[in-house]
Design a protein around this nucleic acid. Structure first.
Length: 592
RNA sequence: UGCCUUAUGGUGUAAUGGUAGCACGAGAGAUUCUGAAUCUCUUUGUCUAGGUUCGAGUCCUAGUAAGGCAACCA
């Protein structure tokens, strides 16, 4: 399907890749290691896709590896359901592009203890691609090591156990005042922390805090929390722990343990970077330290992106699920029929910066159309049929016409049956057409694509005044190559043979929201839902579509791109509309 | 309010002190057995005010605007 002669896209460039290139040049690391660290508390969306493309893109461009890691330090919010969907989505998105850079580890593996430069050290790296029995990395696999680092911090006099409530801590931090427990002895801290671990105290009774600077201008340096007590089971570690590390403590150490070199996250973590660096530097670690870089998350018009809002759409039944083709989730986009390449092209086109902008959905649409135009097989299908009777043909007329599977590849053809009775789309006939309407009208002519020119002689209606059929005459001299094959008419339309057509359920998806910024200014984004975002029709398809493949993409000529839905079955075809063709006529007609 | 970050056509981006370019969109035309695609042309931009410099989108200062953080979430 893909053309090997395609010119490869130029290597992307951005401020993060500039840093990586500099580090490679300077020989700072043995190998570039990035990571994609989702929290398994929801489905991945197109914003994550941007991050995946960045992290895996850097890995493949610099001969490195990108670890898939579950950032699962908060057992109250996370679930294995999400681990599975995340893994599947990542593999789909990087398939055929960066599979060789996917960093996984042996199932059940935890960090090894090693000695580096005479110092004890914890390390867990990725296993070669293709190794059987692998799974993603889990931050929770490092709880033992992270705990050991916490103990070390206490011994260094750089962390203490605090008995204050959340509210009290908040109050003091706001005012830059120290906790009264800040001066506890190392022995007492060690003892209390051990008892926290043993489960002696209820949730919220005590925390472990870093001892940094209570008056620092950056809030995250005002003795931040490192550990909290949570008497809950964890989806990955079970009942092993009663204390769980906070993001800031776990993340930088997870990066270090895995040998990550460039830890790339979104802008909201920018203020955390000094803490990220402080923790790693406080521990006198023997290997080169990872560094954090931040880029702007993706915002798209006509869409909401927050996990909370997407969850609401799912929970309120406003969509059929996380993989509803209207959702901006990776699984939804996939189900809609968007190829992974198109999503990657989109990510490439929008670039990476620190500017928090709003990208027009048209940029995504363009990437999708551009790929599909090159690769989708052309087929005929009629969404809203009108019957045509070719009155000058015998009842049993049958012939097969050659049709191109792809434009610009005339040798690649299929045969479509042509008979006395046909269907055309309702949009392609108007009794009283506006100016510049090129399609069929009473007394007018139109070309049936790959076939003949027909003329409409009579409009037959029922008692309700609805059109029942169009009676036309066909000029059999006008086929391509025929005596009048070069005759020009203004319009060319698609059609199917009535007696040979196969029915298919066709799901017509449109954008979920009617306004560019549905979640602007606190208003209820759900009141901007597009009531026409989903419509189902029974289409009349050319017979070859009966054997359509789920791996293939189709263009129903002059209409849109489609692909088979997972619910499709041989006895009941179901197509999803991925995206319409551009329609300048619709735009023109709307001007009036 | 404090701290951090950002600001280049309508949108997304490039220009690393030396001709402001690309893509998407929009508009016009050519072409067309898809009103698609393709091709040609056009349109619009360095937030403001100072400063440094032979020269500033780029460096400095101040302002303005936008975003983020101020969770025992990540």
């Amino acid at each position: 399907m893909s053309n090997p002669a395609e010119t490869p896209a130029p290597a992307p460039s951005d401020f993060i890749r500039d840093v990586v290139a500099g580090d490679v040049q300077a020989g700072k690391y043995d190998k570039i290691v990035t990571r994609f660290p989702p929290e398994p508390n929801g489905y991945l969306h197109i914003g994550h896709a941007k991050s995946i493309c960045l992290n895996f893109g850097i890995a493949r461009e610099f001969g490195g590896v990108c670890h898939l890691r579950m950032d699962d330090t908060n057992p109250t919010k996370e679930d294995v359901e999400y681990v599975d969907s995340i893994t599947a989505d990542v593999q789909w998105l990087i398939g055929g592009w960066a599979d060789h850079c996917l960093g996984l580890k042996p199932k059940g593996a935890t960090p090894a203890t090693q000695t580096v430069n005479g110092k004890p050290d914890f390390h867990l790296g990725a296993v070669p691609v293709g190794t059987p029995g692998v799974e993603p990395f889990y931050a929770s696999d490092y709880f033992e090591q992270i705990h050991a680092y916490a103990v070390q911090l206490i011994q260094l006099g750089k962390a203490f156990v605090c008995d204050l409530s959340a509210e009290e801590i908040d109050e003091l931090r706001r005012n830059g005042k120290p906790s009264p427990f800040r001066g506890r002895s190392i022995e007492e801290n060690l003892d209390l922390f051990a008892r926290m671990k043993a489960g002696e105290f209820p949730d919220g009774a005590r925390t472990l805090r870093a001892k940094i600077d209570v008056a620092a201008p950056n809030i995250w340096l005002r003795d931040p929390l490192l550990y909290r007590i949570r008497h809950v089971e964890h989806h990955h570690t079970g009942a092993a722990w009663r204390i769980y590390p906070m993001y800031d403590f776990a993340h930088c150490l997870s990066d270090y343990i895995e040998g990550v070199t460039h830890s790339i996250c979104t802008l909201e973590f920018e203020v955390h970077r000094p803490l990220y660096d402080w923790i790693l530097e406080a521990l006198n670690l023997p290997r080169p330290l990872p560094h954090q870089f931040e880029f702007a998350r993706l915002n798209l018009t006509y869409m909401v992106m927050s996990k909370r809002k997407l969850m609401q759409l799912v929970d309120d039944g406003l969509v059929t699920g996380w993989d509803d083709p209207r959702m901006p989730t990776i699984s939804g986009i996939r189900r809609r029929g968007v190829p992974a390449v198109a999503l990657r092209d989109f990510a490439y086109n929008i670039g990476i910066t620190k500017y928090d902008g709003l990208t027009e959905i048209g940029a995504l649409d363009h990437a999708i159309r551009s790929y599909l135009n090159e690769h989708a097989l052309r087929r005929f299908a009629v969404l809203r049929p009108i019957k045509i009777v070719l009155t000058n043909l015998p009842d049993n007329h049958f012939e097969e016409l050659d049709a191109f599977n792809l434009p610009n590849a005339p040798e690649d053809t299929r045969r479509v049956p042509f008979t006395k009775e046909l269907f055309i789309d309702a949009d392609d006939f108007m009794e009283i057409p506006p100016p510049k309407y090129f399609r069929l009208r009473p007394g007018g002519e139109v070309r049936l694509k790959y076939g003949y020119i027909i003329q409409c002689d009579e409009v037959v209606k029922n008692e309700a005044g609805e059109i029942v059929e169009l009676r036309c005459t066909v000029d059999l001299t006008t086929k391509r190559g025929g005596p009048n094959g070069d005759r020009k008419v203004k319009g060319t339309i698609h059609w199917v043979s009535a007696s040979h057509s196969v029915d298919a359920e066709v799901r017509l998806y449109d954008r979920l929201f009617t306004v560019p910024e549905p979640d602007a200014e606190g208003g209820d984004f759900k009141k901007f839902l597009n009531p026409h975002s989903y419509e189902v029709v029974t289409a009349k398809c050319e017979p070859s579509l009966a054997s359509a493949s789920p791996d293939e993409r189709y263009q129903f000529e002059r209409l849109a791109y489609f692909s088979l839905d997972p619910e499709s079955a041989p006895e009941k075809l179901v197509f999803n509309r991925t995206i319409t063709l551009k329609d300048t006529w619709a735009k023109e007609a709307q001007k009036k």
